[in-house]
């Protein structure tokens, strides 16, 4: 079966790739696009390690067909920092030891950013439910939740 040609945008850059009709967006990112920061923990949409945004909306890349990205804006962990300047969430995660093994971290950061874009002043409970689709087995979530709450406070302060 011949491959399908897809034109899309990843982290603000126009890209093209070829894929099988059955390939997931996760396969395309990790394969032809070479963006391995998006992780595969389950392939069934249960762990959130492959969280990306499509036109700003949070999705599991493993549950989306690669061909569906045609004409849309994909954002992955590789586009979160601007050069040497980390996103406030990335910086806060490092300062507050909100990661251990780090395999879930890209997905957690993408989800947390999507949450804060929708709700810049979340309660602890809102953060916990906002990140409930991202499994983390190392941290017990405590430091992740605190880091997201602190980042939100800091970002609100910066806006003011």
């Amino acid at each position: 079966m011949s491959k399908i040609h897809v034109s899309t945008s990843v982290n603000g850059e126009p890209v093209e790739f070829l894929c099988d009709a059955s390939a997931s967006m996760l396969d395309a990112l990790r394969g032809p696009l070479g963006l391995t920061g998006t992780k595969e923990g389950c392939g069934t949409g249960d762990c959130g390690a492959c969280s990306i945004t499509v036109d700003g909306r949070l999705v599991c890349a493993c549950l989306m067909l690669a061909v569906e990205s045609e004409g849309h804006e994909i954002a992955t962990i590789e586009g979160m920092a601007q050069g040497e300047t980390l996103h406030p969430l990335q910086r806060k995660f490092l300062e507050m030891a909100a990661l251990q093994c780090g395999i879930c971290t890209p997905g957690v950061l993408i989800s947390a950013r999507a949450l804060l874009e929708k709700n810049p002043d979340p309660t602890e409970e809102e953060v916990r439910f906002g990140l409930a689709g991202n499994l983390c087995r190392c941290t017990g979530y405590d430091k992740i939740v605190r880091a997201v709450l602190e980042t939100a406070a800091e970002m609100r302060e910066t806006v003011r």
Binding site: R30, T36, I77, A81, L99
Partner: peptide
């Protein structure tokens, strides 16, 4: 190893 892990650059076994 922090910066690599929050930017997606860290290489895990499947990478």
């Amino acid at each position: 190893d922090g910066a690599d892990k929050v930017t997606g650059r860290a290489q895990y076994s499947a990478d």
